[in-house]
Amino acid sequence: MSKLYFKLVTPEKTVADQEADSLSCPTSLGQITILPGHIPLVGNLVPGELVIKSGNSELFLNVTGGFVEVRPNNQIVILADAAEHHYEIDEQRAKEAVERAKKAMTETKLSAQEHAQVTAALERSLARLNVAKKHAHRKTPITGEGVFNE
């Protein structure tokens, strides 16, 4: 079976560059899954979870919006604003971020623009927290990577 050639980049770094069997990503119309042989597509990403399946292994990443581009020849490019592996997420900090955003929404009077910013921040941190919680039971790879990245 043909494979997907998948690349996930953020302005900071290239997060993933590998082959994969399938890829699920959150778009503004809901979660979509891309399999080899998909027609060219461009979509908006929303904050949420990205699942990359390759053989028996699965990769879970949190993305905070961006774009997905499916090119001919099974090339997939994801331009994410930010992305992190599920084991890189600091659950405590994610919780605090959610709290902060919620507090900001209830307490202060916000202009329309500020309100939009806070809502977006809340959405992002909720998505991070969900990804972290969902995979909390999974063994974290003992590489030392990600521990100091935060």
Binding site: P11, T27, P40, L41, V42, N44, F67, P72
Partner: peptide, 28 residues
């Protein structure tokens, strides 16, 4: 590539989002 792209959710929304971001990223 000369292919016709599929847009999710629709071309207008994608472009509204995409074009400013691309210009920003190039200037940046």
């Amino acid at each position: 590539y000369g292919y016709n792209y599929l847009f999710e959710p629709n071309p207008k929304l994608v472009f509204n989002h995409l074009l400013p971001r691309i210009i920003e990223s190039q200037i940046y």
